[in-house]
Design a protein around this nucleic acid. Structure first.
Length: 395
DNA sequence: CGGAGCGCCGAGACCACAGCTGTTA
DNA sequence: TATAACAGCTGTGGTCTCGGCGCTC
């Protein structure tokens, strides 16, 4: 998985787009994500050169490979002195130069990839020079976010010589491999992924696409609750890895759910504001926060789980009057093809045709209908045939 | 300041019925 | 002991009802 480009199917995939759940070569990446403004927002990252399935977060400058955290750990065993560069995810339609500016090794990679890309857009560097964003609007077209700040050293934010003291013996769980921007709305799904990763449930629920990167924004309330009592195999609790990824979109409701004091949540601190936009109108911010909290609370679904999907399907289509279920109208389907010159009708899904009779197996619904001819059938149900082989009667 | 009236909101009830579960023959 | 038949229970969603709460007069 992840070797061939999902779009052209020919070139080797280099980029993983989480929004599209697609592995793309660089040409197709640019082609696909230049389609419209929405697609430009998709956050992409390089694919691990070793497993070809996880988003790469580290570039080993010595081996010249991009690695996910698992492969980085396996390959370097947490003790390598290889020079490594953290990999940022990006969005927009970066040109080859811009990619090179993001990833210094990219220039050499592009030259290799160019020979394999056969799409109409061809190599990125050619098309980019002509159509790429100008320097004036470069920032609008290219957004680069760093998701691996925890691995960056202070002196050089992009290169670090592992292992750091805090990292030795603390293998980063693979669940922190995230390549996308954090949104609070997706936290539940992310938590499911998190659980699958932890418990080793690979695709038992259909969501276990191993290629789907788990998300670091598992710092949602759900994940926090779960992580309280579930230490990892490396002796750290998951809350350590995810708590730092709380974003500005998190609202008071999130915190309340995880048991934190609501005093913290309203961004009210007795010693003053902590953020730049809290200095002007703290009361307004509070009311805004309350409004956001209420709005989110209104739209939230409290772990409503449907245990029986079949019952839900039936309930969805069942007739109601003022919200209450009502007895289903007797819909009779007249089969105009006859059997031994006997017309018959089907009543309900469970009806059976037995020796020229229509029989409903349940006694409460039991109806026997016999018509020796279509005319006699119509006499039984006077004026109910609508001419389209369906009729509705009240018995 | 306390009570009445009003609106808003959340919890629970209600409905039919397929399917499950437990009991009995 | 195994099987079939039967009765009772469960759960499903949209709407309504009711009680609690806050606000205004």
């Amino acid at each position: 998985m992840g070797c061939q480009c999902d779009h052209c199917g020919e070139a080797r995939s280099m980029v993983y787009c989480r929004s599209d759940a697609a592995y793309l070569c660089l040409s197709c990446d640019r082609l696909v994500h230049s389609a419209n403004a929405l697609s430009k927002r998709h956050s992409r990252t390089l694919v691990c050169d070793r497993c070809n399935s996880q988003p790469a977060v580290i570039r080993c400058m010595e081996e010249k490979v991009s690695l996910c955290q698992n492969c980085d750990w396996d390959g370097h065993n947490g003790s390598s002195t290889h020079s490594r560069q953290t990999l940022n995810c990006y969005s927009g339609c970066p040109s080859a130069e811009e990619l090179s500016s993001i990833w210094s090794f990219m220039s050499e990679s592009i030259s290799v990839i160019d020979s394999t890309c056969e799409q109409g857009m061809g190599s990125m560097c050619i098309a980019d020079n002509r159509q790429g964003p100008s320097t004036s609007n470069k920032n609008q077209d290219l957004i680069v976010t760093s998701e691996t700040k925890c691995l960056q050293s202070e002196n050089n934010p992009n290169v670090w010589m592992g292992p750091s003291s805090s990292r030795v013996g603390n293998r980063p769980p693979n669940v922190v491999q995230d390549a996308g921007p954090v949104t609070s709305s997706s936290s539940k799904v992310n938590f499911d992924l998190l659980l699958m990763k932890i418990c080793g449930e690979e695709s038992s629920t259909g969501m276990g696409n191993p290629a789907q990167p788990a998300c670091s924004n598992a710092a949602s309330a759900d994940s926090l609750i779960s992580c309280k009592t579930e230490p990892t195999r490396y002796g750290r609790q998951h809350s350590n890895i995810s708590f730092s990824s709380l974003t500005g979109e998190s609202t008071a409701g999130d915190y309340q759910d995880c048991g934190a004091s609501s005093m913290l949540l309203m961004a009210e601190t007795p010693w003053g504001s902590t953020g730049p936009d809290q200095s002007s109108t703290p009361i307004g911010n509070r009311s805004d926060a309350v409004l956001r909290y209420k709005e989110k609370k209104k739209t939230r679904k409290f772990d409503k789980r449907v245990r029986y999907a079949t019952r839900k399907e039936r309930a969805d289509v069942r007739k109601r009057v003022k919200g209450r279920f009502v007895k289903a109208g007797i819909d009779i389907k007249i089969h105009e093809d006859h059997l031994d010159s006997t017309y018959y009708a089907c009543i309900s899904r469970t009806a059976e045709f037995i020796h020229g009779y229509i029989m409903c197996p349940r006694a409460k619904q039991g109806l026997w209908i016999l018509a020796k001819s279509y005319e006699s059938f119509r006499r039984v149900f006077v004026g109910v045939v609508d001419g389209n082989s369906y009729c509705k009667v009240s018995l």
